Computed example of a mutant assay.
Amino acid sequence: MPIKQLLINQLVACCNESSWFVCYSDAVKNLTEEEACMKPSSPEHSIKEISYHLFYWNERYLKRWKGEQVAENALPFAETFHLPAEASWEEIKHNVIQIFSEWIDELQNCDEQQLLEQVAWSNSTWSDEISYLTIHSAYHIGQIVTARKRQNSWKNEYGV
């Protein structure tokens, strides 16, 4: 399988097609604002905070991919979980799904050679970076499912 199709498959699995793990769309299905904001304990992040963190990093890398300017220094890691005051749960959830969809569209329309190019900030290629992005996303989607199970807002019909 060409690397381009592999990465598209990984992004689709993260966004909206549950398979070996629950996709983001299913992980947040029927989740209320109140449930999205719950924190089991102080050092843990809420589902809304985790979702914002996913949006922050996936959007940052998408902008880089498109050749758009991003701030030289990313926010300190912990701050990428801090929510903008005006952001609703529905808006954040929509943004995460939208950024996954944009990534999928970008890869469907790219030249496979672009995936083999080295990125400017490391010794990695774009295919490496996008692969890490999907692994990072899957990790946090798992956190969301675990948080929902702890708060009893998870239904087995949503996935494993």
Rank of each mutant, 00 (worst) to 15 (best):
Q108M: 10
H82G: 00
W154R: 05
E79W: 03
L62V: 01
W126H: 08
W154F: 10
A85Y: 00
L62T: 02
K48Q: 14
Y52V: 01
Y132F: 14
P76N: 03
V119D: 07
C15Y: 09
A78I: 10
V22S: 04
N58K: 10
Q98A: 14
W154K: 06
S137I: 03
S18T: 15
T32Q: 05
D26T: 08
C14R: 00
G67S: 03
M1H: 10
L54C: 09
S88G: 10
S51N: 06
R150F: 15
L62W: 09
N16A: 04
Q10E: 12
E68R: 02
N58P: 01
N109M: 04
Y158L: 14
D105V: 10
C14M: 02
A74Y: 06
M1Q: 07
P76M: 01
A85D: 13
E91C: 07
E72F: 05
F81I: 00
L115T: 02
G142Q: 05
E17L: 13
K29L: 15
N123F: 06
E35L: 11
E112S: 12
L133R: 02
A13H: 12
K93D: 11
W20L: 13
G142V: 06
L7V: 04
R148W: 04
C37G: 11
L7S: 01
K39V: 13
N95C: 09
C110L: 01
I141M: 04
N156S: 13
E72N: 11
E59S: 13
A120M: 08
C23M: 03
M38V: 15
S88Y: 03
S42C: 03
A147G: 07
Q108G: 11
K93M: 09
A78G: 01
N123W: 03
E112N: 09
I135D: 11
Q69I: 13
W126Q: 05
L31Y: 03
F77T: 07
K93L: 08
T80D: 09
N123R: 11
V145F: 05
P76L: 03
N109T: 04
K155E: 15
I97H: 11
A138T: 12
P76R: 02
L54Q: 05
D111W: 00
E49P: 01
F100M: 01
E44T: 12
P43T: 07
A13T: 10
N16H: 12
S131K: 13
H140V: 08
V70C: 08
A120C: 06
T146A: 15
L62E: 03
